[in-house]
Amino acid sequence: MRSGHFKESIPGLIMLSDSVPVWVWSGLLLVALALAPYAMNAYALSFLILILITGTGALGLHVLTGCTGLISLGHVGFLLLGAYAYAVPVAKFGLPPLLGFFFAGAVPALAGLVVGLPSLRLKGLYLAITTLAFAFIISHLIIEMSWLTDGTRGITVPRPRLLGLDFDSDARFANLCLLVAVLTLFAVLNLGRSRVGRALIAVRDNDIAARAMGINLEAYKLKAFLTSAFVTGIAGALFGIYLSFVSIEGFPFLMSIEALAILIVGGLGSALGTVLGTVFIVLLPEASRIAFGLLGSQAERLFSLGAHEIRSVLYGVVIILFLRFEPRGLLGLWHDVRRLWVNWPLRY
């Protein structure tokens, strides 16, 4: 049993993990996730891909909301912008996909700077509603600029060929998504170890105190918006490729809410929590479907027209119960389990 942590140097203090088993298990998980797509059926695979893409997008929001404490209700706007910034050059003008991915990050990042400007003056819900406004304005602009975006008709997006590799099959595409998701997770985790990350956390905890300590609020808030929009834009491009068709309708406003739900259910402010939250929220509808199936086909027939609504109700109820009994989120639950595991049979 480990008893206490003794750190002798700064690098030792801020390293991602000093535990060998954690590294080994993470590596094994990574290998398993990379190989699993070749053994799964397409339906299970679609969940894996969705988790990886959603996770990337949610990590983008995590940088802004979790780390910096700026609430955004408009992240679907960045997702949409990323999808279009990829689809327009690649599908319409035939530019290489790698360049498309660059645009998918850069265009939303620039938009993020614009959206970030109000954050220098606004707080809390005022900012949240402003970002919501930007999301609506972005989708309006995409429709208006139909000479570039084909307006409401949408753009069909092919699967990419990158660096000579073909990502046409779902399994290959899952590997691409895994690569992006892991890189993002790694970047976000490392952000927390850097000066920038610590400054962001200081801004989140109390921006006035942070400013008093010499942190340039304007610069850091804008940096947070920039990073967050960049990551979310990449996720948007992947999502567009996954859908194979980019249109306004593929990105409903509810995705913004769902992204916030992921952060809160997972445990606000932690990258690990964001990952757990993603898995939970993406799989919840499927879980409630299975739970409903257990009631037997009689129940299904009884509610022949209402079965889908019942599942939606169930979805809401699970979230409420969850937050009622575990407001720290999945991360809190995970900590409890880990403590129990390490200290058992002692209580703590």
Binding site: Y43, L45, F47, L50, G154, F239, L243, S247, G250
Partner: peptide, 27 residues
């Protein structure tokens, strides 16, 4: 759209249906 895709994959790969009688709305 994302749910349309998933539903189709479930029908085709898990339920193994023989034919589709509807593909959802236009977009």
């Amino acid at each position: 759209s994302a749910r349309t895709l998933q539903a189709l994959r479930k029908l085709i790969e898990v339920d193994k249906i023989f034919a589709l009688t509807s593909l959802s709305g236009s977009g």
